[in-house]
Design a protein around this nucleic acid. Sequence first.
RNA 1: CGGAGUGUAGCGCAGCCCGGUAGCGCGUCUGUUUUGGGAGCAGAAUGUCGGGGGUUCGAAUCCCUCCACUCCGACCA
Length: 610
Amino acid sequence: MTRYGPNRPRRYTNIANRRRICAFKTHYSYQEVITMRSSRFLIATLKETPSDAEVISHQLMLRAGMIRKMASGLYNWLPMGLRVLRKVEKIVREEMNKSGAMEVLMPVVQPAELWEESGRWQQYGPELLRMNDRHDRPFCLGPTHEEVITDLIRNEIRSYKQLPANFYQIQTKFRDEIRPRFGVMRSREFIMKDAYSFHTSTESLQETYDVMHATYCNIFTRLGLQFRPVLADTGSIGGAFSHEFHVLADSGEDDIAFSNASDYAANIEKAEALPPTAPRPAAQHVMQEVATPGKHSIDEVCEFLQVSPQQTVKTLIVLGAIRDDKTQPLVALVLRGDHELNEIKAEKLTGIASPLTMAPEARIKAELGVGVGSIGPVGLKIPVIVDHSAAHLADFVCGANKDGFHLTGVNWERDATAPLVADIRNVVTGDPSPCGNGTLEIKRGIEVGHIFQLGTKYSEAMKAKVLDVNGKEQTMIMGCYGIGVTRVVASAIEQNFDENGIIWADSIAPFHIAIVPINMQKSPAVAAKCEELYAQLQELGFDVLLMDEDKARLGTMLADTDLMGIPHRIVIGDRGLEAGTIEYKGRRDAEKQEIAAADVLSFLQTRIKI
RNA sequence: CGGAGUGUAGCGCAGCCCGGUAGCGCGUCUGUUUUGGGAGCAGAAUGUCGGGGGUUCGAAUCCCUCCACUCCGACCA
């Protein structure tokens, strides 16, 4: 029978290894002797890339033996991966504690009642995984914890004197994503640090928000990430401010607009497109109808008429807001041909249905008498909203509202009315920055953090109140602050890898140092030096991986330590020992270097920033 | 949700069209030689060919069905 726990008998399958341990390490604890040896630690590296991994972080996490897939969007974390995950958590925890937040732990499974109270049981779609317990009572797997924390705090905090207060947890969340992908980057189960603050004034909320902003900057800096806080859309919740923290990487799923002359950065959903400042050019041409048989898309029409997309407009038909009589009118949105509609901006306009919905083609045909591809603003009988840059055009091309025909030389006012002009497009590279300085550039980002001011959405719905100075009840004001811990691990890889594998920052590396022996089995001198350094470096507080497998070959060990991203590597062989040197190579270094054996410890101490 | 595709050894794949008792590379295990950048040789283990049903003397292969996974789309004027 197997016993578990610290006294569990250990079977040594590797006799040579056992002999070495006995010979060199008898006075160290079992833990120290065993755990950080490649002969005892699960090094689950793969030479070939599993076929279903698309992005680099996913491929490398599988190949480095960090994670394994269980099911779609569900992953096992192997020892190597978990060491990284725990280090990320540790940094997050330390910085959150430093900020004055208090750690709590809330359940993964949450009662439906709370979600009904906040109204989200109905609102939340199929992303919320719902289930019933044995008494047939409804529950869900928590995708987030606003309801639970609000419930907890309304019962615990009664007085303004206890506020402000900020509570956080590092906990597993579940969101039943439509399409999990990119490994732990977009998985269904993931670990998140979420924090919720409670206040009696918006000033106090703003204070904590600012503290969290600074805390997040500290966290991502310590994690060794290149990141940017960016202004974000506050979503349906509203509220004054919202910042997302993005790690910049080509594989990111969000577009971020940056000013090239200031630190302005905003999610493209949010980035404002400023109206052109110059006056609109004067009309020079008369409006003409031209046949454009079979030409529907902007590209086709431009090619056919030999004009640039900037000189055309496209007309999108969307559903308007539902009117009192329950009907939903059509609304036309007019954009310059080379621009894209920004749905977030459009659905915020009055008279537009939210969420934004494209009109079904059948309705367009029936009500406008024309198919998509030939629609234009001239003579349209439905409300028209024109983007600033489309409104700024003169002598442009558009659909003629007649199948197979377009109009050229069209001008606003003279030929078509533009009663409503608004910002409804995505910004593009080169647009003036909304901050007033410089022009915009667009880069891809991975959202790893989000802070925002919730206000009273949950506290009001769930009656979370305290007594104020005057003894009157006041609804608490809330903020919430999230970091995708598992996603941070993946995004660190997206930003730091080369053709040989991962490159960890010292702060989150699974091991700081790999000791790679050459011919340890045959050379007592090499074995002795490795064991000595292994013990000394551990003593100094480093996490050291000793590559002590019997049959391991040098090439394999070096390839593995590179793949796993261990930032510092020392190679010990007879040749070097005779010369009194030890080979060192930083994972990012182009060349290895020989260090005097006597200086190795101090060299590594100055070199490694834990 | 719509469309496409894939399920064969731990991983990467072939075999399927044209039915006849399942193979390659890597990995794993044993032995041996080797050892300064993913070793050589000799041997070995490992598969309900995604599940179920059908056709057939015989099914990885043909048919039906279910399941899982992956990709693409949800901007078209």
